[in-house]
Amino acid sequence: MKGENSTIWSFFFLEGFSRYPKLEVVLFVFSLVMYLITLFGNSTLILITVLDSRLHTPMYSFLGNLSFMDICYTSASIPTLLVNLLSSQKTIILSACAVQMYLSLAMGSTECVLLAVMAYDRYVAICNPLRYPIIMNRQICVQMASVSWVTGCLTALLETSFALQVPLCGNVIDHFTCEILAVLKLACTSSLLMDTIMLVISVLLLPIPMLLICVSYFFILSTILRIRSAEGRSKAFSTCGAHLTVVILYYGAALSMYLKPSSSNSQEVDKIISLLYGVLTPMLNPIIYSLRNKEVKDAVKKLLDKITV
């Protein structure tokens, strides 16, 4: 490939799961059901955090942001996947590919930072409960959420703009979406600048936020263990359990995708991980928070009562 001439491609072929035609119908049904559940679950969470005054707190404000990101993240790639699974001509134009790449990177990067912000929020709530309203006031919450969005969007813009400038010696992407690592595999030659940018951003948005989350939970756990009453410990654990579960799911998939050696797994395994990362995790987020949170359950019941009246 290094000896071939580069071309400015106006469109790309998304190979997806075309090597397994019998599996495509199953994947279509699976992806469609998961996508609809994701839209419904996250839209419901956003709605109740807006309508229910009891949920006008920093934690639920961040949760509303998280749900909106999940909707945008899945909507960036899953509709294209659904169309291509039923189509024999699996193509995407350059501009759509660029938008898809940018949105996926932006939402994924923003979520990395936001999960660390949510861990800090839980740390303040449990370790400094008396000062919580002062430390996590409305202005601070807006600023922290804004930093998450700005960081994610700017790093995604940097990665996407440089990735689109890399000369490509083919237009067949061995993926179901314009995932940046899959696109860069078409590069005629390796780019030290692009590799450096990817490495630096991956370290900034994966291990560092993960370290901040671990530090926050270290102090949270030590504080919880000092609580004498079983009821108090149970309540403290319940406020952190949902967030910790989401963190494990999200970072587990993300780290396996972006910080592994490129030769450690086949591209087919990468596509399966990407599908689970892009559909299953966003779908499970509202379910996890609903099942483990009494306030969310009560807000959903209140909303259903209003609808059915």
Rank of each mutant, 00 (worst) to 15 (best):
A98G: 04
S95H: 00
E111M: 15
A96P: 01
I78L: 09
L105C: 10
A119N: 08
S109W: 15
V117W: 02
A76P: 03
A116M: 04
S75W: 07
I92H: 08
A96R: 12
E111W: 13
L86P: 05
Y123H: 10
S109V: 05
S104H: 14
V99T: 05
M101Q: 12
L114S: 03
T80G: 04
S95L: 05
T80K: 12
M107D: 06
L103C: 14
I93S: 07
N84H: 13
S77M: 12
A98P: 00
L114R: 05
L85A: 00
V83T: 12
V117I: 11
T91G: 11
P79Q: 08
S95C: 00
S77T: 14
I92F: 01
E111K: 15
A106Q: 03
M107I: 06
N84K: 09
L85R: 10
A119Y: 07
Y123P: 00
A96S: 12
I93R: 14
L81V: 00
T80Q: 07
T91M: 14
L103T: 11
Q89L: 12
P79F: 02
V83H: 13
A119D: 04
S88G: 14
L86V: 01
M107H: 09
R122P: 07
V117K: 09
I93A: 02
Q89V: 11
A98H: 09
V117C: 11
Y123M: 07
C97A: 15
A98D: 07
K90T: 01
S77V: 14
A106P: 02
T91D: 08
P79R: 08
K90W: 07
L115Q: 05
Y120I: 04
A98V: 12
R122D: 06
S104P: 00
T110V: 04
A106I: 08
V83A: 06
G108F: 06
S95Y: 01
Y102G: 03
S88H: 15
T110D: 03
M101K: 05
S87I: 02
Y123V: 01
G108D: 05
A119E: 06
N84T: 00
V83Y: 15
L86R: 15
P79C: 06
K90H: 09
A76S: 13
T110C: 14
L81H: 00
S88R: 15
S109F: 15
Y102A: 00
Y123A: 01
V117A: 10
S88K: 15
S104K: 14
C97G: 02
L85P: 06
M101N: 10
Q100H: 13
A116C: 02
L86D: 02
A119P: 07
K90C: 11
P79V: 03
Y102F: 10
L81M: 10
L115N: 05
M118D: 10
L81Q: 04
Q100I: 03
M118K: 05
C112R: 02
C112Q: 00
